[in-house]
Simulated assay, not measured.
Amino acid sequence: MSAVESVTFKNKTLDVAADVYFPDGFDSSRTYPAIVSAHPIGSCKEQTSGNVYGKALAEQGYVVLAFDATHQGASGGEPRYIEDPGLRVEDFRCAADYLVTLDYVDEDRIGVLGICGGGGYAATATMTDRRFKALGTVAAVNYGRMMREGDLSPDSAIKTLDAVAQQRTAEARGAEARVDDVLPSSPEKAEELGIKALDVVEATKYYRTPRGQQPHGVNRSLFSHAGPAIGYDAFHLAEHLLTQPLQIIVGGVPGEFGSYRDGFDLFNRARSTQKDIVVVPGQSHYDMYWKPEATQQALDTLIPFYNKNL
């Protein structure tokens, strides 16, 4: 089993908490390729980005850095539960800053992996930091697109931005912060509420049960700071700036969060001459987080991809 070390690195003045997964037989006098692994929206490093994909990639000879986003998990930053794309993408750059200070990391062989919203952020980070030599995504979601769609009405984004503005003004004047629990408290509660949406039901089964539950994977959101996400496009300028090798993996069962179509959108938009998309048949967005038959198929694609390009 690969060894794991908890570390911190800086994003400006904030401490970023991370776990480093080491290859079997790790020797600090050697150099290794490295992969930055990014968690989904509302998740944490102890969930799929670390304990599933990070662990498995380390077993294949990679140093893997799985980190908590700033303002989330065990990382620093107040107020809590901010989901700001600018901050999220800078976390990746700072992760690269940390890796290049380690003598045992080959700075010319650093890749990145992102799951769900972490995949969208990983795409932006790869476009704007050339130290990332290869990009892999699993069930990547363009979080800005998802936020803009909201209730699917033509003015959904405008209505949300109006509400955000009102809440931010209220908080500036001393009102209590609005922190939303974006999932039901349990699968039973979801059933009681009559929720039928596949992704919401399966997210609840993952985050609110022992299947994936972790203390920092809370899926909470500070509503007054949602504005930047609504104006964000994770794939903006991919036609011009995303040239690195790209491997996209999506579950074959589409859900409401849109990772299936976002995967094809990124594939079509990316300038990369070496790019590929794999659809894992019969598996949903959340199956790709934990279900062995789904994650193994993803890893069976990712491992040779990184072996070739790092």
Rank of each mutant, 00 (worst) to 15 (best):
H285W: 04
Q296K: 15
T301R: 11
S284Y: 01
K308L: 14
A298D: 01
I303D: 05
L302G: 01
K291D: 02
Y289E: 03
T301M: 09
P304K: 11
L299F: 07
I303T: 13
F305W: 02
L299I: 07
Q283F: 11
A298T: 02
S284L: 06
P292D: 10
L299S: 05
N309R: 10
P292V: 04
N309Y: 13
I303R: 09
W290Q: 05
A298K: 00
H285L: 07
P292W: 02
Q283G: 09
Y286I: 08
S284F: 03
T301W: 08
D287R: 01
P292E: 09
E293K: 15
T295F: 00
A298C: 14
I303S: 07
P281E: 09
T295L: 00
W290V: 04
L310A: 08
D300A: 15
P292Y: 03
P304W: 11
G282S: 08
Q283I: 11
Y286V: 05
T295S: 02
W290T: 06
E293D: 15
D287Y: 05
Q296A: 14
Q296R: 14
P281Y: 07
Q296G: 14
K308T: 14
H285R: 08
P304C: 11
A298F: 00
P292N: 06
N309T: 13
Q296S: 15
D300Q: 14
